[in-house]
Amino acid sequence: MRKIESKPYWSPYAAGLGLGIVLLLSYMLMGTGLGASGAFARGLYSVMHLFAPENMEAHSYMGKYFANGANPLNNSLVFVVIGVFAGGLISGVLSGRFKKTVEKGPNIRTSGRFIMAFAGGTLMGFAARLARGCTSGQALSGGATLALGSWAFMFAVFAGGFAAAYFVRRQWQ
């Protein structure tokens, strides 16, 4: 079988330019920036609502997503995230990068990588709610609109990442 070579990534400046134009269009058309973690929360809350509707509607933190009979899935950010999957798939297939694989360095087992991925994901899901947004909803969007707290958030993310990287280097190097 012929080995399919994946095409090289774009220059970060070209990809960044494309991303910046999409972000600007998002503000011009929808009046909001981009976001990812919010859609995950909305999906989770709708599932939880299936099991305990009264508890969810009365909950002091999650209740607002159901105020006046609202459906948390009826939100533009949910459609944005569905689009992100589609856009990633289109680009991956066109560039020969669609491949069932595990992203890790040579010094960690697949099971170890899965545990780390879940643990890191848990921290980030928690933190994205605490900060009211993630890398896209806070850093990218709040960064472009020059929101003060989003800039503080951005520097904190890089600080946290650089500080933790040493301790998990065996996973990647």
Partner: peptide, 8 residues
């Protein structure tokens, strides 16, 4: 916390 989670 998000940055730490990113590295992990």
């Amino acid at each position: 916390i998000l940055g730490i989670g990113f590295a992990i």
